[in-house]
Amino acid sequence: MSEPTVIVPAKAETPFRRLVSEFADDKLAVGGAVVLSIILLVALFAPLISPQNPYDLSKLDILDSRMPPGSKSMDGITFWLGTDGQGRDMLSGIFYGLRTSLAVGVFSGICAMMLGMAMGLIAAYVGGRTETLIMRLVDLQLSFPTILIALILLAVLGQGVGKIILALIIVQWSYYARIIRGTALVERRREYVEAAICLGLSKPRIIFSHVLPNCMPPMIVIGTVQVAGAIALEATLSFLGIGLPITEPSLGLLIANGFEYLLSGKYWISFFPGIALLVTIISINLVGDQLRDILNPRLQR
């Protein structure tokens, strides 16, 4: 995707560039990546591009409530996707909701990845009882569905933004831990590690700057899948009323708000946030699928 006017001299093939061109082989995945970038930009710049600040109560007019998509407000703003029960513009609500949903999903994903990596590396390197303990915990956790674990945690911890992020981290870390332990056990027997040991490098240095980078490809792949899962799980919990509080509405809460109006045929309050959620999840999964194919060493050409 370089500028068409410049004739690019044949560049040396770096691993990164090869990955980019391999990624571009699948049109569906590229489409997913484009949609995902747009969603990320929208979430990032939500306050700038929203027609209305949906949480500024002084801007809301109760007379504008439950207007169908495309209708105009008292002061001339068009509600492209209609309004909710409080006269809030749905489009703006979705922009802000995406922001919350993505922030919670990505942040918990990154924390879970770090926790899982630490535990997995400890298991692989320390071995013995520590390894048994960690891996039994992982096995135990993976034998229960994520929603059940989240439910147990939220019942135990109570509710709130911090609590739900914590619950999402605890739900996800075991996936990362299992994968990285497996990868690290393979990598530590490779020749480059032996070479590093012969050079007299310290153990932490070998682990963090030699083994870890080589464990990253599978982590990135499950990372995408896990973030999509986390976003869906958070939306589900928020829908059930045990997730994020009303002050920080995510897409799940927007959908829940529309539930009561659904039965009287006012579909748009639940419909559009759901579409936004669905598109986000599908585009992350498409990108993740393609990443899995190009990063899988067994399929490498």
């Binding site: 589900t236 039965l263 045929g265 639940s270 999964n285």
Partner: peptide, 29 residues
Amino acid sequence: SIVGFSLPSFWQGLMFIMVFAVMLGWLPS
């Protein structure tokens, strides 16, 4: 089947209610 995987189950349930119970009136919700 990919869509079936990605569809958040709670939203899919709401849409079922919307289509089959509210719009078409075929089934109780």
